[in-house]
Amino acid sequence: MATQLDLVRGTLDMMVLRALSWRALHGYDIARWLERVSDDALRVEEGSLYPALHRLAARGWVTAQWGVSENNRQAKYYTITSAGRKQLRQETETWAAFIAAVAKVLEARPA
């Protein structure tokens, strides 16, 4: 059964950056990718991707360009910048450290 985690905003940003780390994508691509890789476990309201993308653009982590999508529609493609890659690396490390710490706590034995 799919658990629906309440996504923290920063987490969403991190995942979007990750999605863009291989190639330029438009918003719908990102939604699809998120759906696929999380096995639909992380259900986000897809609209919330767009403020996230604009936020990343304002910080200079991604750049945007209008282009033509696979089925000949106008779509805005987002590309990660080198600053964005650096940010992604940092956040991934922080996240891993956080998860490890939480896991330790959850697996701890009674004192």
Binding site: E45, E46, H54
Partner: peptide, 20 residues
């Protein structure tokens, strides 16, 4: 339904653009 409150997300994204 999957998109959620489209109007609110649109406004939020635009506000981010203006500040930027």
């Amino acid at each position: 339904e999957r998109l959620g409150d489209v109007g609110a997300y649109e406004r939020e994204a635009e506000a981010i653009d203006v500040v930027a």
